[in-house]
């Protein structure tokens, strides 16, 4: 597996895949995509990087422990349901607001926050399983 070509390409490929995963995550509300599939793409990026250059560089590159990332995502997803408490509507009701960034209207919402949480949960959980398997296989 660890040919020169693969080892050279893998970091670029991983970087592009992470970028693509964020694109897929953000377009998810109205078009195919979303947190789960975006998270899977990012997790496979880390898995590819791990196969090419070993598990330790991946762990250094993502800095946080994968389970910590999953915990962060879980926290965000749960908190995303809470703003509806202030409006007197049930848990997880979608709240929308729009802000102007350089004269472009950007819609912000609690479902998007929830989706970002899902993204982190999937990235963290799948990366941690993938790295655990790779560690056993190659080291």
């Amino acid at each position: 597996m660890r040919t020169v070509i693969f080892r050279t390409i893998a970091p670029f490929l991983a970087a592009i895949m992470v970028l693509f995963s964020i694109f897929v995550l953000l377009r998810g509300h109205n078009e195919p995509g979303g947190g789960f599939i975006g998270g899977l793409i990012a997790a496979s990026a880390f898995a590819i990087y791990g196969i090419a250059s070993g598990v330790a560089p991946v762990r250094r590159a993502i800095y946080f422990h994968p389970m910590g990332i999953a915990g962060f995502g879980l926290f965000i997803a749960a908190v995303a349901g809470l703003p509806s408490m202030l409006k007197g509507v049930p848990f997880l009701t979608g709240m929308w607001t729009a802000i102007e960034v350089f004269e472009v209207k950007v819609d912000l919402s609690t479902p998007m926050l929830f989706d970002i949480g899902v993204y982190f949960v999937v990235v963290g959980a799948i990366t941690s399983i993938a790295l655990a398997l790779e560690e056993r296989e190659f080291d």
């Binding site: 959980a125 799948i126 399983i129 655990a132 398997l133 056993r136």
Partner: peptide, 16 residues
């Protein structure tokens, strides 16, 4: 699918 996927991954690691 999400649930069965995560269980499959877990059981694979456990079985291994």
């Amino acid at each position: 699918i999400v649930i069965s996927f995560s269980f499959f991954a877990f059981l694979l690691v456990l079985g291994f």
